[in-house]
Amino acid sequence: MPRISWRRLAGGERRWAVLGLGAVIALWEIGHRVYGDFVLPSPLATIAALGRLGASGDLWPAVVTTARDALSGFLAATLAGSLLGGLAGRSTPIRAMLQPIATLLIGVPAIAWVVLSLLWFGGSGLAATFSVAIAVGPVVFAAAVQGTRTVDGGLRTMARAFRVPFGAMIVDVYLPHVLSYLLPALGTALAMSWKVAVMAELLSGTGGIGDGLAAARAEVDTAKTMAWVVVVVALLLIVERLVIEPVRRYFETWRHGLPGEAA
């Protein structure tokens, strides 16, 4: 009965997650003991460095700046990517025109976008936002195209037969289906957004976690570097849990067959 044993495993899922994280921290500590403070500061030293960052007042502004850079770019990418992707999914000429462009944009390394946008936008905050949007947009676009293309033709015919207005067509027929493609892609896109934002900040020196990393590198302070990394990862996890996860749960209620109000 494999089904039963799987269910039992899922019941203790949290315990396994803790075990996995614990293993990483243990390896980290072992690495520290083997290679010493300079190469790999201990987890405790990293926490201490994080505390110093907080106390010095550098932490909070950096978090705000990076969140602004990453989320504004992510938002722009989501809006433009899903709108254009939706259009391309419905219209063959638009798809034929936009798909090669999206492939081309995906092919350009993210770091190249950072360099270009620094040249174009200079030290203004726009450089990071633009880098994030253009690096992440094509990922959202591709998912939106695929989602829109695979909407059930029968449901479309049905909606047409009942002369359902355009708004209801989008909200009730297209959106729930497209979201099943879009939401996983948005998770990936969000993770990418933080990485690109930090990269852009590191090069532009206009504040944010990337700027902090650059400073830590200049001071050859490994513990501080690790502390910044911990901050980025924590931010990513918090936003993923707070934004993406609830949205996913809301739109997938029907899959689990839980009673829900909908019209």
């Binding site: 029968g154 049905m158 909606a159 009942f162 209801a168 009730d172 729930p176 009673p259 109000e261 909908a262």
Partner: peptide, 22 residues
């Protein structure tokens, strides 16, 4: 229709109400 063609993400009531959207 030959197939029921109900929206999978809407309850029975939501599906009937969807027909009234127009």
């Amino acid at each position: 229709f030959q197939e029921p063609l109900l929206l999978p993400w809407r309850t029975a009531r939501g599906n009937v109400a969807f027909g009234l959207a127009g």
